[in-house]
C-alpha cells in the first residue's frame, strides 16, 4: 500500500475526455514526477489528487484512505502553485500560518511549525513582510514554507520553478531535493521540463494526451523506453528517429532510434550524412547532419571540428539501436 494511489481515474470537461483511465501508485516517501507536453493533463491530474477538481470516475487514495469526497483541506496535502499564490494582504508569517489556524491548531504549535519552516528555508528576516516586498525566489520559498508548515502526508507541486530565472531554478531545484531528503514526505511534482524530472524524481510518470505512456525510474525510462514518445521525450538532445530501411532490419520494424550521445562519426559506416551545423559547447560538440532528408543530432565528447557540407558516416554499437513498430511501440 503506497501513500498515494490513483485507480481508474478519468476526467472529462463537458464532452472532452482529458484523462483516460489513470492507474498509478506512489510509495511512502517517494518523489514522483508527472511530465508531458503542454496540455497533456498534468495539472488536471494534480488538481484531482488535491481535491480542487472532481474526477469523473475512479478513486483517489491517500495513505490508504479513499479521499474522493473529502475537501482539499481534509486530505492531508499541501500544494505549491506555479504563480506562488500568496495572500497579498497578509504577512509572510500569516501566509504560512493560515492553514493551521483554520484547522484549529493551538497558537504554540503554529508558532513552532512556522519557526521550523522559516529556519529550514531561511525566511526568518522576512516574516513580517508582505509578498509584494519580496523577490521572486523569496516568494517561492514562502510558498514552499506555507506547504511545509501544514506537515502534510503528501506535497503537490505544480511547475514551481517555471517562473524563476535559469540560475535560480537550478538552486531551487537543489533546495527541493534537499528538502525532500530531510522531510521524507511523499512528493508529487508536475513539470514539462524533462531535465527537472530526470534530476529530481525517484520515478517519472510520462503523460501524453491524457494517457500514461510509461512509469519508471529516470534511468529506466532513458535506457528502456516503451515507445517512441517516451524515447523522444526523455533525454536531451532528443533521440534521433530514422527510417528502418536505412539498416538491415526485420520487416515489422518501421523506425529506428539512436541517442545523439551513442553515435560517433567516422569515414565508414552503414549510414552517411552531410554536416549542416556545429554547436561548440566546450565540454561537448553537437553536430547536426542531414540524413535521409531529416536533421539528425550527434553529441560528441570534447571539442571537435567538421567542415560544414562534408560527408561523414555514423558509427554506433548494434545494441544502441532502438527499434519501433509502425505504431511507435518498442520492439525489444
Amino acid at each position: 500500500m503506497g501513500s498515494l494511489a490513483l485507480k481508474n481515474v478519468c476526467k472529462s470537461f463537458g464532452n472532452v475526455e482529458v484523462l483516460h483511465n489513470i492507474n498509478l501508485e506512489a510509495e511512502e516517501g517517494e518523489f514522483m514526477i508527472f511530465v508531458g507536453p503542454s496540455g497533456c493533463g498534468k495539472s488536471t491530474l494534480l488538481r484531482i489528487i488535491a481535491g480542487l477538481e472532481d474526477a469523473t470516475s475512479g478513486d483517489v487514495e491517500i495513505a490508504g484512505d479513499r479521499v474522493n469526497h473529502l475537501p482539499p483541506s481534509k486530505r492531508g496535502i499541501a500544494m505549491v502553485f506555479q504563480t506562488y499564490a500568496l495572500y497579498p494582504h497578509l504577512t509572510v508569517k500569516k501566509n504560512m500560518s493560515l492553514g493551521l489556524k483554520q484547522a484549529g491548531e493551538d497558537a504554540a504549535r503554529i508558532e513552532e511549525q512556522v519557526k521550523k519552516a522559516a529556519d529550514m528555508l531561511e525566511l526568518g528576516p522576512y516574516l513580517d513582510r508582505r509578498p509584494a516586498e519580496l523577490s521572486g525566489g523569496q516568494r517561492q520559498r514562502v510558498a514552499i514554507g506555507r506547504a511545509i508548515v501544514r506537515d502534510p502526508k503528501l506535497f503537490l507541486f505544480d511547475e514551481p520553478l517555471s517562473n524563476l530565472d535559469a540560475a535560480l531554478r537550478v538552486n531551487t531545484r537543489i533546495e527541493i531535493a534537499d528538502l525532500h531528503r530531510r522531510l521524507g514526505t511523499t512528493i508529487v511534482y508536475v513539470t514539462h521540463d524533462q531535465v527537472e524530472a530526470m534530476t529530481l524524481a525517484d520515478r517519472i510518470v510520462v503523460l501524453q494526451d491524457g494517457y500514461v505512456e510509461q512509469i519508471g525510474a529516470p534511468m529506466e525510462l532513458y535506457n528502456d523506453p516503451d515507445n517512441m514518445f517516451v524515447a523522444g521525450f526523455i533525454g536531451s538532445p532528443a533521440m534521433n528517429f530514422l527510417d528502418a530501411r536505412l539498416l538491415d532490419m526485420p520487416a515489422e520494424v518501421a523506425t529506428i532510434g539512436l541517442r545523439p550521445e551513442a553515435i560517433s562519426l567516422g569515414s565508414e559506416g552503414p549510414i552517411s550524412g552531410k554536416v549542416s551545423h556545429l554547436e561548440h559547447l566546450g565540454a561537448d560538440t553537437n553536430v547536426y547532419l542531414h540524413v535521409d532528408g531529416k536533421l539528425l543530432t550527434v553529441r560528441l565528447f570534447g571539442q571537435q571540428d567538421f567542415e560544414v557540407g562534408s560527408t561523414v558516416h555514423l558509427q554506433f554499437a548494434p545494441d544502441a539501436v532502438y527499434r519501433f513498430d509502425k505504431d511507435g511501440k518498442r520492439i525489444r
Binding site: 488538481r47 488535491a50 480542487l52 475537501p71 482539499p72 483541506s73 481534509k74 496535502i77 499541501a78 500544494m79 502553485f81 499564490a85 500568496l86 495572500y87 493560515l98 492553514g99 483554520q102 484547522a103 506555507r146
Partner: peptide, 8 residues
C-alpha cells in the same frame, strides 16, 4: 485554490 487548500 490556495485558500481552499488552507481550508478557507
Amino acid at each position: 485554490d490556495a485558500g481552499r487548500i488552507d481550508g478557507l
